[in-house]
Design a protein around this nucleic acid. Sequence first.
DNA 1: ATCTGGCGATGACAGTTGTCATGCCCGCCA
DNA 2: TGGCGGGCATGACAACTGTCATCGCCAGAT
Lengths: 197, 197
Amino acid sequence: MLVEDQAMVRGAMATLLSLEDDIEVVADLGSGEHAVAEARRVQPDVALLDIELPGISGIEVAAALTTAAPSCRVMIVTTFGRPGYLQRALDAGASGFLLKDAPVEELAVAIRRVHAGERVVDPELALSALQEGHDPLTTREHEVLQAARDHDSVAELARRLHLSEGTVRNHLSAVIQKLGARNRGEAVAIAEQRGWL
Amino acid sequence: MLVEDQAMVRGAMATLLSLEDDIEVVADLGSGEHAVAEARRVQPDVALLDIELPGISGIEVAAALTTAAPSCRVMIVTTFGRPGYLQRALDAGASGFLLKDAPVEELAVAIRRVHAGERVVDPELALSALQEGHDPLTTREHEVLQAARDHDSVAELARRLHLSEGTVRNHLSAVIQKLGARNRGEAVAIAEQRGWL
DNA sequence: ATCTGGCGATGACAGTTGTCATGCCCGCCA
DNA sequence: TGGCGGGCATGACAACTGTCATCGCCAGAT
């Protein structure tokens, strides 16, 4: 099963994989919601999931599949090698993590290995995931930083989160410290770049 | 000729296109610099260019091809339907503009039409490009906004651009007004989203 | 029983940001 | 020749932002 929002990429990968004798694309979907529903029906052997999807993310799909299609092995195929993504993907039960930067030839190989029960993870990425350490933000700090993404003022953030302005500022200040940023915008950028948002 | 930085997508598209009887992939590259050099040697009939590339952008490649491979028709194939991208692509001499959201089947069709001398542009995108109007920023405002992307303070921007702090603030203020933003960060986001950066 | 850490809040402070009025210099165009 | 717009600058002002000290509450760990 193939889940990828860009129709053209999805189509190209689908026909590519169909050329392999031992691989059949039983479903290809463009949204996470559809993917979970379809997986429940089809019960595929392997699911290839992009992370950035409209609606629910590939990570969330992976988590949902553990109950919706328990025998289905999950491999994440994504654009960005964000360390936090790898971490969360593995936590969500993924067996493989492949970058779209990798040559196509690796795709079929990786699928077979994942299907056989192996774990397939870019070793370089695994290393940098370890080096980055893990997300140092508390849940509240997360929420505040999330909300800060759309460039609202402190006052608006406070309103949206039902907090005092001072509290919002305190949380943001803490986040900026923890991430070593110089201001709010940079903090958002750093967190995004590490896959913590 | 196929230019796309994500190796896996590039590979998938290459084999896909190779399946067509009347299409041959004479070169596939992952960077704009290599693409221009290769095009000069190979002189392909059609070039498919992604916009977001490491180093020089697909738009710049398109412009370079008008002299490096004058007989080559250019089609942009990109993820984002930013109105400004379309505008600039056409200005740079592109004959086609296709989104990766489009179904694969359209790809070969579009290539043939572009090769035949037609223009191929998503009509919906063309419309929204007209509605957005064009980039209202002066060159200087552009530069300042560009520099502001990496979350520097006004003082640092001023240093980098060899301007007074007040001048930088004035330019930023003007940009914020023109784009209808509420602050610097939002201004950057709006400009990026419209393809003006 | 105490300590720790997350969460919320306040008040104060310095620093940064966005705005505005105003001025000067240039090049372009009518 | 004058007018207009872009670019650069200054100074002033209000608003916003980031930091810090300090407080209270609560839950989980030692």
